[in-house]
Design a protein around this nucleic acid. Structure first.
Lengths: 231, 231
DNA sequence: GAGTGGTCTAGACCACAAT
DNA sequence: TTGTGGTCTAGACCACTCC
């Protein structure tokens, strides 16, 4: 029925700080003081305070004490799931049309993007994702054959590049950018977009074993797609 | 010099899982087994495993055991910092121009957005953020006076609404959406944008003490702004 | 030197799951 | 019934900070 002792201490300290009774830089009672105040062992108090450190509510300095941390950085964290997951989670039907799946050679720009030599062989795919039949994402992707040799053999109407690459090349690092862009005529046509409608573009590069595994551009119709969430 | 015992156990288990030696659903050795294996007390093993739970690497079931968690959802996580922080972090100069700072009354749409009655009093601001003199963000914001009564008295050339609101109304929940949009003529002019250039729009609502504290629309020129990052 | 946090031990009692 | 994790105690040693 009742909460664990460490949780009570945790909540007690958190409440004081949230209520503004203790503010940034103030010293929080020491472990010894809290032990006496709550009648518990030091390990129990330690656990409570460790959880507050993890939550960035306090900072602890060995030999000095425990202090209220600066108010948390007020950043918005946006989680972008794969289009297939997102559509499936909404209970709608996800379909993929493979527009292109081929070998290609790196031109100057691609060579820089993929970290390979000019003329190096790359895999290249262009997929159209539909949501209950409505175009929702045009995915253009280049893949390093050394890291994902079976890329061209995948059936992307049944799996997604994302899923295959996650299995084939363990993810080490991701770089991304979100922009608003006017699409070219081909993209506009594929996504069935109106004349002045802009695209929401997500660029993403992934690294595996120290090399660029994949570079993708995900184009979304501006009036039919948003990256959303709450927390 | 040497890492704490709990950290060694933590890393040992993590390495096994990362290497694929133990996969989703596999049973991880019990606390008792790890105690013997590493020659430590149970509390020490417990701490190692608790950290792995926090990292969503394992799940623990009382009475049953510790198991490898499903591989983490392969989503892209985008962190959007406040424009002032972002510019300052780049070592450039951030300036704010206050275009508007006033009381207003909620129309039908705003009443729904802010969760107040039609005609209720709201605070309204429109700020232009510049990056070394170049317009980078047009911020339009409505604020619930009950939660941030001193909003109109702030000097937003010195602080930001974000900073003030963080102090005044402790953040409970955030809802956001990112879209690509054509700006209206006024926005295009303020952001010094070209004719066909789209905007990257971030909408955000924040809750405090169970009520909507603030609703904002942050407009960014599509060719001068991206949400970027890597991890 | 006194106070503080970081870590660790060797027990213990409990709730719960599998058998 | 046995094994599991969740919690807790009453000590301990150490490294560090502040005075």
């Amino acid at each position: 029925m009742s909460a664990p002792a460490w949780k009570k201490i945790h909540d007690h300290v958190l409440a004081k700080i949230r209520a503004g009774r203790w503010v940034e830089g103030d010293r929080v009672p020491s472990e010894a003081e809290l032990c006496e105040r709550f009648g518990v062992a030091r390990m129990t108090v330690g656990r409570a305070l460790r959880e507050l450190v993890a939550a960035q509510v306090v900072v602890r300095v060995k030999g000095a004490g425990t202090f209220v941390a600066p108010p948390r950085h007020h950043a918005t964290v946006v989680e972008i799931r794969s289009i297939a997951d997102e559509i499936a989670a909404s209970g709608r039907r996800h379909e993929t049309e493979v527009l292109l799946l081929e070998k290609s050679a790196a031109d100057a720009a691609l060579a820089v993007l993929m970290g390979v030599k000019r003329g190096a062989r790359l895999f290249h795919s262009r997929l159209l994702h539909r949501d209950d039949g409505v175009p929702r994402q045009l995915e253009e992707r280049w893949v390093n054959p050394a890291l994902a040799p079976d890329f061209l053999a995948q059936d992307f109407t049944r799996t997604t590049p994302n899923e295959y690459l996650t299995r084939a090349a363990p993810l080490e690092q991701v770089e991304y950018g979100i922009e608003a862009r006017q699409p070219d005529a081909e993209t506009r046509r594929r996504l069935a977009m109106g004349r002045d409608e802009p695209c929401l573009l997500l660029r993403r590069r992934t690294w595996s074993r120290g090399r660029v595994a994949s570079a993708a551009r995900l184009w979304h119709p501006g009036n039919r797609h948003q990256f959303t969430g709450r927390f």
